[in-house]
Amino acid sequence: MHELSIAQNLVQLVEATAAEHQVMAVRSVRVRIGALSGVVGFALESAFGLVREGTVCAGASLDIEDVPVRIACPNCGSVTVNDLTFMLCPNCGRASSELLSGRELEIASIEVDESDCGCAASESVAALARC
C-alpha cells in the first residue's frame, strides 16, 4: 500500500501550493498517473480520502488523468503500448527500450474557490499575478 505514502506527499505539495497562494480550501486536485508509475488510481483515491482529513484538501476530490505508455519505435516513431507485457511496437513488432511517457506521477493543477483565494480577494495586482 505505497499509495498511502504517495497520497501524503501529494497532500503536502497541495498544502504548500495553497499556502503560497493564500488558499484556505481546495475543491479538486488533478493528478497525472502513468501506466508504468507503479501507482493504482483507485488505491491512491482511497489513500487520499484518508490523508486529506484536517488539511486544505479536506473537501477536495481527486481527478486522475491516466497517461499511457509511449515508446520510441525505430520505424514508426512515437507509438502507444497498451499491453505492458509487450513493450514492443504494436505496428511493426520492433523492440524499443526508449520510454517517452508512462512513468508520470505528477500533480497537474488544483482547483480552488475564488472566494478562498487570498490573491483574488486582494486589490493588489502583484498578488493577483502570483495566481
Binding site: 504517495i6 506527499n9 501529494l10 503536502q12 505539495l13 497541495v14 501550493t17 497562494h21 488558499v23 475543491r27 493528478v31 506521477l105 505528477e106 500533480i107 497537474a108 493543477s109 488544483i110 482547483e111 480552488v112 474557490d113 475564488e114 472566494s115 483565494c117 483574488a120 495566481c131
Partner: peptide, 16 residues
C-alpha cells in the same frame, strides 16, 4: 467561481 492553479510538480518531488 473557481480558479485553477497550475502546479505541474512531481508528487514525489521531495524523495527525488
Amino acid at each position: 467561481m473557481t480558479r485553477i492553479l497550475d502546479v505541474r510538480q512531481k508528487i514525489l518531488k521531495q524523495n527525488d
